[in-house]
Each structure stands twice: as structure tokens, then as C-alpha cells.
Design a protein around this nucleic acid. Structure first.
Lengths: 224, 224
DNA sequence: GTCTATATTCGGATAGAC
DNA sequence: GTCTATCCGAATATAGAC
């Protein structure tokens, strides 16, 4: 028997942590769990996350995760909200550009880059691959705010009407998807994204911007 | 004891099935298994296919499936090839249109419709959802042929160069993806697909086709 | 080729003490 | 909130008889 547990004079009773301090610790741990879940998802696939592995990474036993999440689907819900918030914050962090069209291009670039950085994040946010997973209303909140932001920028650039907005979303989603599939981490599709915005979704009367680094589409004998 | 097994005069020995007859029966069973696998995937999700359930549906015991497929990933491989072949055959079945642009539009419509008809098929063919699954070279063969066909049609319509072809693929994929997500089975995005082809990927000198049912894009105050 | 029986592993989730 | 212990079910895959 060692004396490691011998009485020391200091009583057992820790100074009771204030309720909000406890809440902050809890929130921090939740955040850490979600972050490790992303990391695991990148390794094993989104559906391949194991709660045992996850618990290991955050120094918990597997059942203890249930103190933070009601179920595995609930964990996906938190990851979804986290991912949507990352996207929203990235767009808000940038200094908005004065010119409406430039700003629209910038936001599309943000989105395409965002998607290409992390394939599984893209999958959870924009593809429905987890059977039974449906984001809760709360988890959808940052997604709604992003959509709102996008709609505003489109309107400012002269794109209005549901049909136009839908078409725009579809094309941007396609670019993001291709970027993810073909050139993750690359810049190639970002350039194409800009071209699409400039050709298809801006006022035809407006003179084309003078950007020598971007080819104008010709549809005839395009180089390379 | 019934007399169901009483000797009948006809000897046990069945006329030995010819080797190719046996091969045909085997191929037919494989096809049936794949078909039921699609059906199960639609119900439970692509990753949710259970070999037990699948075996039930084709009147086999679960281990017997291993007489037809080496593993579950191998089954996904067969499904992938099957799906790609369906797409290819649909495009080849149609009478090709004389006008190159019309033909290009038609093939895009084929693809978007194809994707929207079956979400999980779209997922297996065009999204990478199953961890560890990579289509074999053999399974990729119909996919290669489809790409070839598409490249031909694009060239005929005056779209050339890797950059143009990539952009086209991205946009079509985006349309397909949106159709799947927002309006499965509907025709809405097929219409938009046509519009994209006509705006972005055809010779600007060519007069626009006279199709009163399709709005020309205005980017200003589009209705609805 | 099909079966029965079983190996093996792993999954998510719960009970209850502390 | 965290632990230990455990439940229960399901999964893919293999062995070996017929």
C-alpha cells in the first residue's frame, strides 16, 4: 500500500465550479468530440465512424459519449450544424466586395473551395448518404442563414426569381461536386466557377471585367 | 411417407445440361441478385444492404451468395457496372438527332432523367459513398464508353478542349444532383438542363432555336 | 451450387455503481 | 459525468457435408 491516498489536510471538497464554468467545459468537450468525429470520418468514411474509436480519441469510454449525444444520429446532427456554421462563418469573415458581381463570384469561390477541402464534410452537408439522418430544425439554422446570404448576393447582382436562383445553386453544386471528385484541394474549378458566374448570371449589358488571367468562353476551339 | 419419391422408370440422371446453358442460368441468377440488390438499396440505403436480406429475396441462404460474388464490395462492383451499362444503353437506344446541338441537349436530358429516377444508383455511380469501394477496370468499361460518346457529341456541337468538356460535365452533374435532391422524378431540371446547353455551350452565331415552351435566360426579372 | 452450422468481430445502446 | 460490465443484435465470411 502506498501513501498516495493519505489524507493531506486539504479537504476533499473542491471549490464548487460555477454553473457557467461547467457549461463552458461541457461545450468545449462537445466541440472536441465533434472535431475528432470529423477526423475519424475522413479516415473511415462518414458512415464508418465507430463510437468506440471516437471515445478513445477523446479519452472517454464509449458509453460516456451518451452523456453528450443522445444517439449516433444525434452526433451526425451536431457535425452537420458544425459544418454549416463553418461555411457561413467563412463567408461572413471576408470583407464584402463593393461590386455586386465580384462579391457573387467571391462567394461561389468560397463555396467551391470549402467543398473541395473536405470531402466527407461536403457529403454530410450536401449529399444525403447516411440512411435515417435528417438534420433537425436547430441544425438547419446556419444553413438557412447561408442560403439567405446567397440569395441577397444574387439579387444584388441582378439575379432574381426562383428559377434563376435554383439554376445557380445547381451549377454551383455541380462545380463543387466535380472539384471534390476530380481535383480536391486544387484551384482549377474555382477558376471555372468564376467563368460560369460571369457568363451565365450577370447582366449582359454590363461590360465584361478586364481580367486578362481569365479566358472568356468562346465555345469554339477553346484552348486546351 | 408419401410416394413422391417412388421410382418412376425415368432414371435419376438428368440430361446433362450443356455448359453454356449452365452459364446462362448462372448469369441470369447473377442478374436477378443484382436487381434485388438495387431494390434493397432503395429501401435501406446503399451502405445498408444486408446480405441476409438479399439472399432471402433471391431464395438463397446467405452464404450461397458467395458462389456468385467474392465479397460485398464485389457485389457493389457488379451493381456499378450494371448501372453504367443502363445509362449507356439508354443513350444508344435513342435515335440520334440530326442536329448536333439538339443531340447534345438530348443526351443531357437522358443523363439528368437517369439520375433523378434512382437516387441510390446515382450515388453509387457518381458519388463516392461506400468506403473502400473502387470500381474495377472491367466495371469501368461502360463508363468509359459513355464518356467517349459524350465527348463525341460535344465535339460535334463545337465544344472542344479539356477545359470546356470539364466545365460541361460539372454543370451537368450539378443539374443531375439537384434534380435528385429537389425534384426526383420531376421534369423541372430537365428544362433547365436544356437552357444551360443552349446558353453556355453552343455557337453564339447560331440563331436560337424557336422553342416557345423554353424561356430564354434573361438574368433580369425572370418570372417566378 | 447449395445447404447447415458456426466463427468472429463489431456495432450501438443500456444498467447501475460511484 | 464517468466508469465497468453487459446486452443484444447484426454483420460478413468460412468450413465442410451433400
Amino acid at each position: 500500500m502506498s501513501d498516495r491516498f493519505a489524507p493531506t489536510g486539504r479537504p476533499h471538497q473542491r471549490p464548487t465550479a460555477s454553473p457557467d464554468r461547467r457549461a463552458r467545459r461541457r461545450a468545449a468537450k462537445r466541440a472536441r468530440i465533434v472535431a475528432e468525429a470529423w477526423s475519424l470520418a475522413r479516415r473511415d468514411g462518414l458512415a464508418g465512424i465507430s463510437l468506440r474509436d471516437l471515445a478513445d480519441r477523446v479519452d472517454l469510454q464509449q458509453p460516456s459519449l451518451y452523456a453528450y449525444f443522445e444517439s449516433k444520429l444525434d452526433l451526425y446532427g451536431s457535425m452537420f450544424e458544425d459544418g454549416q456554421r463553418q461555411l457561413l462563418e467563412r463567408c461572413l469573415a471576408r470583407e464584402p466586395l463593393a461590386d455586386a458581381r465580384d462579391e457573387l463570384v467571391a462567394i461561389v469561390e468560397d463555396l467551391v473551395r470549402f467543398s473541395s477541402e473536405d470531402v466527407v464534410r461536403h457529403q454530410l452537408l450536401f449529399q444525403r448518404t447516411i440512411p435515417g439522418f435528417e438534420p433537425s430544425d436547430a441544425a438547419m439554422e446556419p444553413a438557412r442563414r447561408f442560403l439567405e446570404l446567397m440569395t441577397d448576393r444574387l439579387r444584388a447582382a441582378g439575379v432574381e426569381g426562383q428559377s434563376e436562383v435554383d439554376l445557380f445553386s445547381a451549377i454551383v453544386a455541380g462545380l463543387a461536386h466535380q472539384q471534390v471528385a476530380n481535383d480536391p484541394g486544387g484551384d482549377r474549378w474555382v477558376v471555372l466557377a468564376r467563368r460560369v458566374v460571369e457568363t451565365l448570371f450577370t447582366d449582359a449589358d454590363r461590360p465584361p471585367p478586364n481580367r486578362p488571367d481569365i479566358e472568356r468562353p468562346t465555345t469554339q476551339g477553346a484552348p486546351q
